[in-house]
Amino acid sequence: MDSKNALLQVKDLRTYFHTEDGIVKAVDGVTFDVYSGETLGIVGESGCGKSVTSLSVMRLLDEKGEIAGGKIIFEGRDVMAIPESQMMKIRGNDMAMIFQEPMTALNPVFTVGFQIMEAILLHQDVNKEQARTMAIDMLRKVGIPEPEKRVDEYPHELSGGMRQRAMIAMALSCNPKLLFADEPTTALDVTIQAQILELMKSLQEQYGMALVMITHDLGVIAEMAQRVVVMYAGKVVEYAEVLTLFKKPRHPYTWGLMNAIPKLDEDKEVLYNIPGVVPDPLDFPDGCRFNTRCPLATDKCRKEEPPLVEVEENHTSACWYVDKLVEMIKVSRAGEGA
């Protein structure tokens, strides 16, 4: 794909937080493109910088956060150069966002209807009555029963799943071109999760928007995404199309994540869990940031940082030992009898 046609281009993004303990390099060199109508998955464990990446694109960082480097191009415009007064018109209208916690992401003192209408009234040239009708329509579209009644209810009167649907209704009310869904189903139970994902898929088809699906769950990625960015410790470690990624993972971290998915049809629930934890962003290890947890790590990994290189067309990885990994995967899959 030609990145010139991309709806959103993120190039070598670096987002740092200036905290009392020092500089937190939450995002430290992230590159990806998003095309109209597609779903890009961003996957990684907690604390990898997934949320900070999307907040950077929407320019919603708090005052400690700073975009220290890189470029963000949305519809050909340099997002970092857009004045705040115009950015306000883009947010909610061209780019929207859904958050992880439906319990806390809606304002408890305003009705659901008010919160949806507010977005509509901000960005569209309609009066209150029309906005209300549109809000009710939106609630119906996201599958909320009795939308005429629900529109006047407060968030606490809705269940978690209903609240997330209301969030989606709010985000889609202005027909955005790009939607960030930041772990939209993590806080919900499994059956509701499936329903919400299904809903997002069908709405995406209807509206033709681009979706950036942020998750730590490769299952969600498999379900939703066409292309995948794997993040680790503020960096992209692997990028591929979804089938390629599952068939031919070329980074030990991706491989680790894949094995961490519980496979219900097997006796052993988890074959190989990644040992250890994500390193502290105040104090990343030298060399490859995954070296503290990688089964393949050598002295070279502890000294030199591997660059993100193409391992085949449309597939990049940042690992010194892709060959060794391929070997390991072969052995492991043969052992499984797959």
Partner: peptide, 26 residues
């Protein structure tokens, strides 16, 4: 610091309304 304040900003609500309405009422 609450999530719903971020939600309001993400919908494009101007900062003074975020503060005077969304935050203050809570």
């Amino acid at each position: 610091r609450k999530d719903y304040i971020r939600t309001a900003r993400a919908k494009g609500v101007p900062e003074n309304i975020v503060i005077q309405k969304h935050a203050k009422k809570n």
